[in-house]
């Protein structure tokens, strides 16, 4: 159901699945122990309780083991993150403008659009600008999200790996029509993208007033 359309899908999904598996294991362990104890040591069966004050080796074990596990999880998350903030040098740069309540995109050649068109298998770096309040640029199919903050320019990059049209959401609450602040990212083959870009550039040069208004 969830689309798989960028280079970040695998690392994010893998990290998620590994951590979830560990978590589910512990959840089942705790729950199973609780249920077992409640049944086995029920007062009807076990009239007399025994005091167990503590067990230091056990305490140390269940402190150290989780520590190791969380350090491993941290490592997974951190390496994934490092990848997400290191855009390749040859990335295509697109400026993203967020305002209440719409997205707009501006390519380095001045072409503007309400929908983000990108060529497949080419790294894209988006620079995020806000014209008013906080927003968040979120493409679930690419597994990426970054807040758009006024007075700051954040960035984000991705490598689209599958053709198609994917949803862009605003994930940071921004007022009345926050939930309608949709846009789309369209992944095209390189030749189709070039055609689109040429057409846009041509129509823009017909109406030069539009480009300068930005």
């Amino acid at each position: 159901m969830l689309a798989d359309a960028s280079n970040f899908v695998q690392p994010v999904d893998n990290t998620f699945i590994i951590i979830v598996s560990i978590c589910v294991f512990f959840l089942i362990l705790i729950t199973a122990l609780m249920i077992t104890f409640v049944i086995k040591y029920n007062s009807k069966k076990n009239k007399k309780a025994k005091n167990v004050h503590g067990n230091v080796p056990l305490e140390v074990t269940w402190t150290v083991v989780p520590v190791i596990l969380v350090l491993y999880m941290f490592y997974l998350g951190w390496t994934g993150y490092k990848h997400e903030v290191s855009p390749p040098k040859n990335s295509m740069v697109v400026n993203v403008y967020a305002q209440m309540w719409r997205w707009s995109y501006k390519y380095s050649n001045g072409v503007e659009s309400d929908t983000l068109f990108v060529p497949i298998n080419k790294p894209v770096k988006v620079l995020l600008h806000s014209r008013d309040v906080d927003h968040s640029f979120y493409i679930p199919a690419f597994r990426i999200k970054k807040d758009v903050i006024p007075n700051r320019t954040n960035f984000e990059w991705f490598l689209p790996t599958r053709l198609g049209t994917y949803d862009v959401f605003c994930a940071e609450y921004c007022g009345l029509r926050h939930s309608y602040m949709y846009s789309a990212v369209v992944v095209l083959p390189q030749d189709k993208f070039d055609q689109w870009m040429a057409k846009q550039a041509a129509s823009d040069s017909d109406t030069p007033a539009d480009t300068t208004s930005m």
Binding site: M73, E84, E172
Partner: peptide
């Protein structure tokens, strides 16, 4: 445990908000 899941940076970037 769901909190731990979000502690992982790249997963959080996807799941936050």
């Amino acid at each position: 445990l769901t909190g731990i899941i979000q502690g992982a940076l790249n997963v959080d970037l996807y799941l936050t908000d």
